[in-house]
Design a binder for these strands. Structure first.
Lengths: 134, 134
DNA sequence: AGATAAAAGGATATCTTTGTCTTATTTTTA
DNA sequence: TAAAAATAAGACAAAGATATCCTTTTATCT
């Protein structure tokens, strides 16, 4: 479904959304410990997300990762595309070169439905709020 | 979503269902050429499927792979479980140790729906017939 | 019986993903 | 200004997935 990298990244972004705000930031180390994932590995994923402007970061003492105003509309789809590429959203689940509604593979409509259900999800901050409410 | 192995296996099984029947069998070489996938690699996948009784095989000249009567109810789910394991059907899409309807991850209901839509698909032979009708 | 055709199985090679370690760069703080 | 804290970046290691090759076993056909 998703690569391990992508799972880590999604969880990390949700954690950032839930645990930062205003001036508050959170370090890669702290995130890694909370999620119980390898720190250096996660750090690279966070760098990648930051380079693509899905999250924000600041260096130096007191620095860390956070969601700036321009990150508030970032979606799960954005994170997935950034880490795993667009395959999940574009290519056939069976790897067929041609697979469309005209000439669908047996899984075509199932994967399309899944795809769309992910595309329609709310923003990362909104998802983080939903989790907190439970 | 699926590993390359699993994609090959699914396509191969559908090809077998579509191109064999009665006494007719099909060799690994012929399947590999039709699907344009590496022959030796596919052969191992077919062996694995045969060991688990999802497909049948016979050795020697004129041998090959086919669907015996006891393979007629084999499903896509069976093939996926055989090659990729049961992760797709059991574990959380984000890799969380606990993720249930009580304490769902943000993707829980979406993956559940996808899972179920795969579980409800018809047998491999039935899917192969549907393809032929198009 | 011998030749041939095909699956079964094992060993090995290559590539990708995942994980670790070290150094550089930037920022804050004392 | 020096030390400390944090991200950024690069090299490398380990594990897993993918791919290839070779030998063995089994069945068929002449």
């Amino acid at each position: 479904m998703f690569s391990k990298s992508c799972k880590y990244a999604i969880r990390a972004v949700l954690h950032i959304a839930a645990h930062t705000g205003g001036e508050k930031k959170i370090g890669a180390k702290e995130i890694a410990e909370a999620l119980e994932v390898p720190k250096s590995f996660l750090a690279k994923l966070l760098q990648q997300l930051a380079r693509h402007h899905l999250i924000s970061s600041s260096k130096g003492a007191g620095g860390g990762f956070y969601l700036a105003p321009e990150n508030q509309e970032v979606s799960l789809e954005d994170v997935i595309r950034c880490i795993d590429g667009e395959d999940l959203f574009t290519s056939c689940a069976l790897g067929l070169p041609v697979c469309s509604s005209d000439k669908p593979c047996p899984l075509h409509c199932h994967t399309l439905a899944f795809r769309q259900s992910i595309e329609q999800m709310r923003s990362i901050p909104a998802l983080a709020r939903e989790i907190k409410e439970n």
